[in-house]
Simulated assay, not measured.
Amino acid sequence: MNRPSPLLLDGVAVAMALLDVWAHWDINEPLRMACGLGAALALLLRRRHPLLTFFLTLPSVLLSDAVFACLAALYTLASLGRPRTLLVVGALAFAFSDITALPSANLDLTRKSALIAFGYSAATAAAAVFLGQLVQTRRDLSLRLAEISEARDHQQLLTAQAALAKERAQLAREMHDVVSHQVSLIAVRAGALQVGTGDPDTKEAAATIRRLSVQTLDELRHMVGVLRASGGNPTDLTPQPALTDIQRLADNCGIETELRMALPEGLPPTVQRAVYRTVQEALTNTRKHAPGATARIDLFQTNGSVHVRVTNTAPTQPPLPLPGAHHGLIGLRQRAELLGGTMTSGPTGDGGYEVRVVLPAEAAG
Rank of each mutant, 00 (worst) to 15 (best):
M1A: 14
S5E: 11
S5R: 10
G11W: 02
M16I: 08
A17M: 11
A17H: 09
L19I: 08
V21R: 07
E29L: 10
L31E: 12
L31K: 00
L45M: 15
R46F: 00
R47G: 02
L58Q: 11
P59G: 12
V67N: 14
L74G: 05
T76D: 14
T76A: 15
L77H: 04
L77T: 10
G81A: 08
P83Y: 00
T85L: 13
A91Y: 06
A93C: 13
F94A: 02
A95H: 02
S97V: 10
T100A: 13
S104G: 09
S104W: 07
K112I: 09
A114S: 15
L115V: 13
F118N: 01
F118G: 00
F118R: 05
Y120K: 09
T124R: 12
A125M: 06
A127R: 02
V135Y: 00
V135N: 01
Q136W: 03
T137F: 04
R139D: 12
R139P: 02
D140Q: 14
R144S: 05
A146K: 11
H154M: 06
Q156D: 13
L157D: 11
L158K: 14
T159Q: 11
L164V: 06
A165W: 00
E167M: 06
A172C: 09
R173Q: 13
E174V: 04
M175V: 12
V183M: 14
V188A: 11
V188Q: 15
R189P: 01
Q194D: 09
V195E: 11
K203P: 03
K203Q: 15
A207V: 01
A207H: 10
A207E: 12
T208Y: 01
I209A: 15
D218P: 02
V224G: 02
V224K: 03
V226S: 06
G231K: 01
G231L: 08
T238N: 13
P239L: 04
A242L: 04
I246E: 03
Q247K: 10
A250R: 02
A250S: 15
D251C: 04
C253P: 03
G254K: 02
G254R: 01
I255W: 00
E256W: 01
T257G: 08
M261F: 02
M261T: 12
E265Y: 02
G266S: 08
L267R: 07
V271I: 07
R273W: 06
R273N: 10
R277P: 03
R277D: 14
R277C: 03
V279W: 01
L283I: 11
L283M: 13
N285I: 07
T286Q: 07
R287H: 04
K288F: 03
P291W: 01
A295M: 01
R296Y: 00
L299D: 07
F300K: 11
Q301F: 02
S305I: 04
V308M: 09
V310G: 12
A314W: 03
Q317E: 06
P318S: 13
P321W: 04
H326N: 13
G331L: 03
L332K: 05
R333L: 08
Q334I: 06
R335K: 03
E337H: 15
G340R: 11
M343A: 14
G346N: 14
G346W: 05
P347V: 08
G349I: 05
V355M: 09
V358M: 09
L359H: 04
E362S: 14
